[in-house]
Amino acid sequence: MTLQEAKSFFENLRNKTSKKSEIKIYDKFIHILTELNNRELSSAELQSIESKLDSLNLTAEKDIKFFKKSLTDFENFLKESLSLISKGYYTGISMGLGISFGVLFGIVFLSGFERSMGISLGICLGMFVGLLIGRNMDAKAQAEGNVI
């Protein structure tokens, strides 16, 4: 399945549905396929992407859970093979890790405050630090041209 065929397939599915959750998944697929189509890819990279689209078996109409899983698999493939990530990828991961470490920091070091106050401050601090680190990494990936 070529990039253009896959894009047409998802545009057709998008036009057939009125559910917001399905439209959101189809729009993500369409966005990724459009960005890949606009990118200067080598023939080997293009062939690997098309073979991955074939292996996902997208041609049969299936439920939204299948397409959601296929989208995740396709994004992971792009990340691993071509080092392409979606917008805000590192911010999301860093904020999650920041919150986790913030809870730990709040329990261990800020326990001098009331217990819930220390945890709350730790979460806020961890989220802020995670946001800073994630935005920095996203900006670096954007400058390198690795963001879809």
Rank of each mutant, 00 (worst) to 15 (best):
N37D: 15
A60V: 15
L82V: 01
G106D: 00
F29I: 01
I64K: 02
N146I: 11
L58C: 02
N37G: 08
L131R: 15
F67Y: 09
L58D: 04
M95T: 05
Y89R: 13
K20G: 09
E80W: 12
T17K: 01
S18F: 10
N57Y: 15
L104C: 07
L131W: 13
I107R: 10
R115Y: 11
H31V: 09
R135S: 14
T59I: 12
I123V: 14
G145I: 03
I119S: 00
L131G: 12
K65T: 07
S21H: 06
L125C: 06
L41V: 03
I148W: 01
F9M: 10
I123M: 07
S18A: 13
C124V: 15
H31I: 09
L53I: 01
S94E: 01
I49M: 00
F29R: 02
Q142K: 14
S42Q: 04
V108M: 12
S83A: 11
M127P: 11
E144C: 09
R14C: 10
L125T: 15
T2L: 03
G88Q: 07
L36C: 03
K140M: 08
S100G: 11
T72G: 09
L104T: 07
L97N: 09
E5P: 05
D54C: 02
L82Q: 02
S81R: 12
I85S: 11
I93M: 13
L46W: 04
G102I: 02
N146K: 15
G106N: 03
N12A: 14
L3D: 04
K28P: 08
D73L: 14
Y26P: 11
C124E: 10
Q4A: 12
L121D: 00
K87N: 12
L131V: 06
M117D: 08
G98F: 06
S111M: 06
F9T: 14
L132Q: 14
L41S: 08
L46K: 03
A44S: 14
A141V: 13
I93K: 15
V103Q: 03
G122R: 05
M95I: 12
L110C: 01
N38Y: 09
D27I: 05
E11P: 08
Y89D: 02
L3Q: 00
A139L: 04
N57Q: 15
D54W: 01
S83R: 13
Q47P: 02
F77M: 02
I148S: 07
L41A: 04
L78Y: 00
Q142Y: 14
F74Y: 02
T59A: 13
L131H: 15
K140R: 09
K16V: 02
V108K: 13
K28G: 12
L33E: 00
G92Q: 12
F109R: 05
E5D: 11
V129A: 07
L121Q: 00
F67K: 03
E75I: 10
E114S: 15
K20H: 10
G112A: 13
N76K: 15
K20M: 13
I107P: 10
S55F: 03
I23H: 07
G130F: 07
L3R: 01
S18R: 15
I119Y: 06
N15C: 09
Q142N: 13
A143V: 10
I93R: 13
C124W: 08
Y26G: 05
R135Y: 10
Y26C: 05
V108T: 06
S94Y: 10
K65W: 14
A6E: 04
